[in-house]
């Protein structure tokens, strides 16, 4: 405990010692000239090797998601809101692949007359009744697009767990956790970009896409849910 409380002092002493040492190292009467030469040459080699590695491997292979312009992100965000509003208010769901991403689809044989859907609240449940559809239900997990800055990371999101037992369809959304890194040479390399942002973290707030379930059922089946409002839609 005492050692821990002394830690800031020790760090300060270390920095002070380092400055004194650096000051002495700056003297041209420095006796370790040969060592210094090796240090500089060695460091130069390491710098070149690091740069070659960074260019060949590091940045390109690991980049995730598709980069889009900030304008496109805003356009998508507005389009998503319109799409959900239209579905809820007018009962028309437009499956636009530019806005929506189909994460998974499952079909279950179903002969009953009533289907209860267990789904957490705050998620949309859309039901499409197809007259030419018999003996099965198709459950599709859709998500609208997710952007971190100007990077589309929708495809990194996890699919929902969907299971049908007796006449209860259980839907659980799984949380996706991403640990990311953004690299930038620094502000000085972006200072003269004509006012464009340096990088992704300088972008606007992230856009978190909404998950929803589209349930395709034969006509005449009653769909209920305890926690969520069931919205009947016509799919376009």
């Amino acid at each position: 405990m005492i050692l821990l409380s002394l830690l800031p002092l020790l760090i300060l002493a270390g920095i002070f010692a380092f400055i004194i040492w650096g000051y002495r190292a700056l003297s041209f009467k420095n006796p370790g000239r040969k060592l210094a030469k090796w240090l500089i040459v060695g460091y130069a080699v390491i710098l070149v090797a690091g740069t070659v590695y960074s260019y060949s491997e590091a940045s390109t292979k690991q980049v995730i998601g598709k980069t889009v312009s900030r304008h496109e992100v805003k356009k998508q965000d507005k389009a998503q809101i319109r799409l959900f509003d239209r579905a809820r208010e007018k009962g028309v769901l437009q499956i636009n692949n530019d806005i929506l991403f189909k994460k998974s689809e499952k079909s279950f044989p179903f002969k009953g007359k009533q289907l209860t859907v267990s789904i957490p609240d705050s998620y949309n449940l859309f039901v499409d009744r197809d007259p030419g559809f018999q003996g099965e239900v198709v459950v599709t997990h859709y998500m609208s697009r997710t952007f971190i800055g100007n990077m589309d990371v929708t495809e990194k999101r996890k699919e929902a767990s969907i299971a049908l037992k007796n006449s209860v369809l259980d839907v659980t959304f799984n949380k996706t956790k991403l640990h990311l890194a953004a690299y930038s040479e620094g502000f000085v390399f972006h200072q003269f970009n004509g006012g464009k942002r340096e990088s992704v973290w300088e972008g606007d707030d992230p856009v978190f896409g909404d998950d929803f379930i589209l349930l395709k059922v034969p006509q005449g089946i009653k769909v209920t849910s305890e926690d969520q409002l069931v919205t009947n839609v016509t799919v376009e």
Partner: peptide
């Protein structure tokens, strides 16, 4: 770039933007 290589080699992170 040396720093970038060190991060890529020794720290397990997924790059969102480079």
């Amino acid at each position: 770039h040396l720093f970038l290589s060190v991060v890529s080699l020794f720290m397990k992170v997924r790059v969102v933007q480079a």
